[in-house]
Structures are given as C-alpha cells and as structure tokens.
Simulated scan of single mutants.
Amino acid sequence: MSKAVIVGGGIGGLATAIAFIRQGWEVEVLERSARIAEVGAGLSIWPNALRALDELGLGDEVRARAAEEGLAGIRDSKGRWLSRSDVEAVRVRYGSPIMMHRADLLDILRAAVPKSTLRTGISVSEVRSDGTVVHSAGTSTGDVIVGADGIRSVVRRAVVGEIEPRYSGYTAWRVVITPTEPIGDMGETWGSGERFGYAKLADGRVYCFAVANMPAGTPGGGLSELRSRFGTWHDPIPALLAAADESALLKHDLYDLPDLKTFVAGRIALIGDAAHAMTPNLGQGACQALEDAVVLSRVAAKDADLSRYDTLRRPRTQMIVKRSRAIGAVGQLSSPLAVLARNTLMRLAPSSAQFKALAPILDWEV
C-alpha cells in the first residue's frame, strides 16, 4: 500500500489526509501542536470549495453546520452602497456560498480521519527528496510527502529553498460575538485605509473582521482601538463592537507568498498556505487548500510523477493570490482623491461586473 506523510494538521492537511485515504492510501499526519484546534474566527466556503468537500464525502455535513452567506455588497462608512452583489445570479450559476466557524469545519475534518493516523506534538525539522521526514520523534517515510504546514513552511525549503512571505501593508482583527440586536446579511464597508465586515454564523453569533493600514508588528490594537476607528461607522457596526469581548479578539498582520517556481520536487508536494498563502480579500484561502487536497490525491493515485499537480494547481492559485492582493490594495486606498475615485467607479459599475469577476474562481470543477 502506498503511503502519504502529511506535515500539518490544519484544514488543508486533514482534507488531504481524507482525500488520500479515499484513494486507498495509508496516511500519517504530523502536527506540531499538542492538539489539533482552530482559532475563533469565521470562514467563507465558496461553491468551488463545496464541490471539493462533496468529493471528500463531507459536503452535506458541512452545509448542515453552516449558514448561507448573504452577499450584500460593499458600502462606505456612512452606509451608502458602493456596489451590490447579484446574489441570485451567483446562487443560480454556482450555488450558495456558506459561512461557518473555522473550528466547526476542523471538527468535521478531524472526525473523518482515523485517530491512529494523527501524531500531535511532532515538530518537523527536515524533509528529504527520498521521502524521509526528520522530526522530533525520529523519522517517517512515504511515497508522497505533503507540505501543509502553513506560510512559514519547513517542507517548502525542500522544494524551493527559503522564501520570505510578503507583508500586505495592513493588519486584521477578527472576533466572534453574540449580537444584542438582529443584523441583516453579510456586509463589508470600505473607508480610507480601513475596512470592516460582518457575517452571521449558523448558531446566531456574528463573525466580524476589520483591517487597517499600519506597519508590521505594530503593538496594541485592542477593542479600544477598533471602537475608535470604526465606532462612528454605519449601523450595525457600533453595536457589534459594543458587544465584543476583548478576550475573544484576534489580531494578525496579513502576509502572502510571492509566486513559487514549482509546488513539487520529486516526492514532495506543497498545498494551502505553504504553496500559495494569500490575503483574505476573496475568502479563498481555505477553499484553495480544499481544492489542492482533492487534486493532489487524484494525481498521486494515478502517477508517481507529481508534476501534473503543479500544472493543475500553480497557475490557478497564483492567479487568485494576485487578485486578492489587488483587491486589498484598492480596498486599503487612503488618499482622499484615490478613495473618491474608487468609490465613484464602484458606484458606476454594474452588479454583473462582480459576478463576471468571480467566474474564473467559482467555475472550478473536481
């Protein structure tokens, strides 16, 4: 029986384990954390990723624990619409995107992987081209080694050497709250060098996120800063911030990866953030990792040469990285004249423009 050793037990790593198991492979997952857990944040799962989850046999279970995402559109800080999403066109053509808590998706994936395949508390130090993985508990060997170990990937060094992630120029806050009053569909608001968004989860809670331009590593930035930045923006943003709990707030600088020359080297393949970490502006980070899992397992099951995986995945994911970075650059404009021009152009653009822009991303089939 062929064996895959997967470094990283996050969403991408577990999905890849499930995909290989469904192809009849033996699987070993090495995770450096003592337990597999996810931070308190929401997650958009677009129709392309739902097709991947259907391929893994988990689509219905995921949908049952998620809320349909209402694609309302984008407003300015006073609540005036800059663009409206053609919700029905997306639903008819591709199916409805959903929103769920990241921890819920991780729970579903973890439950589908036999406990005997998961090894936690294992730190990987080296991956060799012959399929050997050197780690804190010794070594593991496999016919395929999968780097699912994130943007600071150790496995990536064996494929393309040292690659430094790129700082986006802005940081992000995320928090899940219990609202004190009902809210409408998902919304995103663009200001001057700042953005704020919110979406309902299936259990009635609301996932909120915010981004602001600032140097990497800027200290502080708790709820007091969020309320200072966004507390005068349109409803329901002030009420959402008033209901937020400081202990639940997460703050992270946002990075992505420059284009890698390849995702594979011999028996080694990279997936998810290890291959194509992207800013969250398109909500496609986890979605692309799910696609990776399905495609890699199919390629590996048919051929020992993994180059087909690189051919199928690298152009697509690098296109999405570029698009997400470009959207972030537009959303984070801070010059008054640039913001005015951006907002004017967005108001003039037909709703069909956004629908057409999504087509190359959502059109993916297994």
Rank of each mutant, 00 (worst) to 15 (best):
M1R: 13
S2Y: 01
V5M: 05
I6V: 12
I21K: 11
Q23C: 10
V29N: 09
E31P: 04
R32M: 10
R32E: 09
S33A: 15
S33K: 13
V39L: 12
G40W: 00
G57H: 07
R63P: 04
A64N: 06
E69Y: 12
G73C: 09
D76C: 11
D76T: 08
S77F: 04
S77N: 10
K78M: 05
S83W: 03
E88W: 01
A89S: 15
V92C: 10
M99P: 00
I108H: 02
I108G: 01
V113Y: 04
R119V: 04
I122V: 15
V124H: 02
V127H: 09
S129R: 14
D130T: 09
T141R: 12
G147L: 02
A148E: 01
I151Y: 01
G161R: 06
Y167M: 06
G169T: 04
E181P: 00
E181S: 14
I183E: 02
I183R: 10
D185P: 05
A199I: 07
G204H: 03
N213F: 00
P215A: 15
A216D: 13
G217A: 13
P219R: 12
F230V: 08
A242Y: 02
L249T: 10
K251F: 02
K251N: 11
L257S: 08
G266N: 06
R267H: 04
A277F: 06
M278W: 00
G283N: 03
G285K: 05
A286F: 00
A289E: 02
A293W: 00
V299M: 04
K302Y: 00
D303C: 10
D305G: 07
R308V: 07
Y309C: 10
T311A: 14
R313L: 02
P315A: 08
Q318N: 09
M319P: 00
S324T: 13
I327L: 13
S334N: 07
S335G: 13
P336A: 10
A338L: 13
R342N: 06
R342V: 03
R342F: 06
A349R: 14
S351C: 05
S351W: 00
F355V: 15
L358W: 12
L362F: 11
W364I: 11
